[in-house]
Design a protein around this nucleic acid. Structure first.
Lengths: 220, 220
DNA sequence: CGAATATTTTAGCGACTGATAAAATTTCTT
DNA sequence: AAGAAATTTTATCAGTCGCTAAAATATTCG
């Protein structure tokens, strides 16, 4: 038999998930790498599993043996990307100095855009299209962390350690300004090609003082 | 004959463009409205002209009579969207008070996200995918305005009217923070649904003081 | 009106899409 | 080595894709 096993591999609703074989792990990694390439460039609907399979150096049925269908592959990729994407926020700690903690978070987030631009675009594309795939599954892991850190920033604000108009919009602005460099890279390259060499360096030199000045309570 | 005329309609490289008929104007508007809907939701590759035709209430060949092919339709939509998108920046005037001029620009840009979220997403999607369609055609109208305003901000900075680390990154940060509310609306709705009612109001209350504080020269 | 032109409908094309069945092969286990 | 299980290949499917030719209809204009 072939179909039942394939079903086990792709989905996660299977009765007995069965630990993956050495070959399965290797093939799935190859496929996911190719899938990141293609999905991040064309979006879910614009990408084809044929192309992904070709990029991974295998036939389409072979790909579909390891992932039950296109959506399962996409979801798997999206899920792991979200965990990567969440990690810088998770490190935001209550123990440090508030202004510097947030500045350090901005640096980590900016570094993620620089190191993982494709993952940034994959995620941005999914949100841009209105999250048609696995709405809950995608945001459920992020929601708790998000609310947790909102509460942390609120408590800092209440104690007067930082000046913040609205923690939600603070985080959104950090996401926006940092991810912009990965998501809109094509535009930046088109409008200011000369600045590409030191882009992330300059971005940090711009953003950190901006947030430091904004967050530091004025000593009156 | 049908094909030659159709070719004239869709493209703009035709020898004699011929002014559009009353019917042509009406149909093209209907088609463009439907195209905005579908392209902004699925991107160029993910959208199908069949769906656009269906949404516009017409058959696919009828649509293709008014636009020579899928790409011509997309380009036409993208082109008009860019003009709309450029307008708030064009209004940035050398005659006003620098800090307030930039704050007014932020308000205009934010208002664009609120009033034209689909156009924002259409444009964001194109850039996200690396601008595979009509790279020059899309950015050519924007480049001049962009460089013009960069020069204006630089001159303000030189005169000491505003504090700005880097005009390029200032504009990018404005684009990022304002467009974020349209482009990532699905994420915001998922993470802080309670804040949706007053989203753009709160965004303005957050962003304007942020840029005002950042740009206002410290009086030492 | 009637001729010329513009528009729409009908029918259908080859290419590609995601996916499956089943045979052939490789790998693992004993 | 032999049998069982996992993996891969081959062949193929129905559905949708963008697009076109040509006939039929509607509109414009002398």
């Amino acid at each position: 038999m072939v179909s039942p096993q394939a079903a086990e591999l792709g989905g996660d609703a299977g009765r007995e998930p069965k630990e993956p074989t050495r070959i399965q792990r290797a093939r799935r990694e190859e496929i996911l790498a190719a899938a990141l390439e293609v999905f991040s460039k064309h979006g879910f609907r614009g990408a084809s599993i044929n192309r992904i399979a070709e990029m991974a150096g295998m036939s389409t049925p072979r790909l579909l043996y390891h992932f039950k269908d296109k959506e399962a592959l996409y979801r798997s990729l999206l899920k792991s990307t979200l965990l990567l994407w969440r990690s810088p926020l998770q490190e935001l700690s209550a123990s440090g100095e508030p202004v510097e903690e947030i500045c350090a978070y901005v640096r980590r987030k900016l570094s993620m855009s620089q190191r993982f631009p494709k993952q940034s675009r994959l995620f941005a594309g999914e949100i841009l299209m209105g999250v048609p795939n696995a709405r809950e599954e995608v945001f459920e892991p992020l929601r708790d962390t998000f609310e947790d850190k909102i509460a942390l920033i609120t408590s800092w604000s209440r104690k007067g350690h930082i000046t913040v108009q609205d923690p939600h919009h603070l985080i959104y602005s950090i996401w926006a300004t940092t991810q912009h460099y990965a998501d809109f890279e094509a535009q930046i390259a088109e409008l200011s090609p000369a600045k590409m060499a030191t882009l992330y360096q300059d971005a940090e030199a711009f953003l950190i003082p901006m947030y430091r000045r904004m967050l530091t309570p004025s000593r009156t």
